[in-house]
Lab assay of single mutants.
Amino acid sequence: MDVFMKGLSKAKEGVVAAAEKTKQGVAEAAGKTKEGVLYVGSKTKEGVVHGVATVAEKTKEQVTNVGGAVVTGVTAVAQKTVEGAGSIAAATGFVKKDQLGKNEEGAPQEGILEDMPVDPDNEAYEMPSEEGYQDYEPEA
């Protein structure tokens, strides 16, 4: 019985440690998101679009440190934060509304985080759909 109880105690310690790591990862992701939003706020009209992409990228980098179902929630929060940063930029006159959601080359930025393969159960990952990809044929 002692062996059984000791095993359960060790398992509990492992769960607590994993929860603490997840909590730490979420806190880091939130900190990076805040950094990115402050970065966007300090940019001029020309830099705002690039700044919004930076927020998304920093958040995406930190999301990889967070495991399990938390990833889905962090990704949703990050996307809403990026959308909010863009709205703030438009409201303050840093950028025109028609410039939001495009990178410096004018290509749409939507789907940055949505296409990231995420499995809350950590069982399997699927690649994003290939609808947006084109076949590449090298020139002879």
Rank of each mutant, 00 (worst) to 15 (best):
T72Q: 03
T44F: 15
P108D: 10
K12S: 07
A17K: 12
A76Q: 12
G132D: 13
Q134F: 03
E123H: 02
V48R: 03
E61R: 02
V40F: 14
A89F: 06
V37M: 09
V70E: 06
G86S: 13
G31S: 14
N122W: 02
A91S: 05
K80S: 01
M116T: 03
G73T: 15
V82D: 05
D2S: 03
K23P: 01
K10M: 03
V55W: 11
S42H: 00
V40Q: 00
M127F: 13
K23V: 09
S129N: 12
K12Y: 15
A107N: 09
E35R: 07
D121C: 08
V63Q: 02
E130Q: 11
G86M: 02
A19G: 15
A69H: 12
Q99E: 11
K58Y: 14
S9P: 00
V77N: 04
T44C: 05
A85N: 04
E20Y: 15
E57H: 04
E123M: 11
Y133L: 13
T59S: 08
Q62K: 10
V66I: 12
Q62L: 08
E130L: 04
A30V: 04
E131D: 09
V118W: 11
E131Y: 13
E139A: 15
A27M: 13
A17R: 15
V49C: 08
Q79S: 07
A11V: 12
E114N: 07
G101V: 04
D135K: 15
N103C: 12
M1H: 00
T72D: 13
P120R: 08
D2H: 15
V3K: 03
A11M: 15
E105I: 11
E20I: 15
A30M: 14
Q109M: 08
D135R: 03
K21Q: 08
D121T: 06
V16E: 04
N65S: 01
E137Y: 02
I88H: 06
T22I: 00
V70N: 02
G7A: 04
V74F: 09
V63H: 00
K60Q: 14
G25K: 13
K10H: 11
E139F: 14
V70D: 05
M5K: 09
K80M: 08
K23Q: 02
K12G: 06
D115K: 10
G36E: 06
V52G: 01
G101A: 15
E131P: 13
E105Q: 14
G93T: 02
V74Y: 03
G132H: 06
K23A: 09
G84H: 15
N65A: 04
V48M: 09
V52N: 01
T72M: 14
K97G: 13
S87P: 00
G68N: 14
E137C: 10
Q109I: 09
G7Y: 08
L8A: 02
M1A: 03
K32I: 12
S129G: 13
K45Q: 08
K34T: 05
D135F: 08
V55R: 04
K6N: 08
G73Y: 01
K96F: 13
D135G: 04
N103K: 01
D98M: 09
G25D: 07
V3L: 07
A11P: 00
G93M: 08
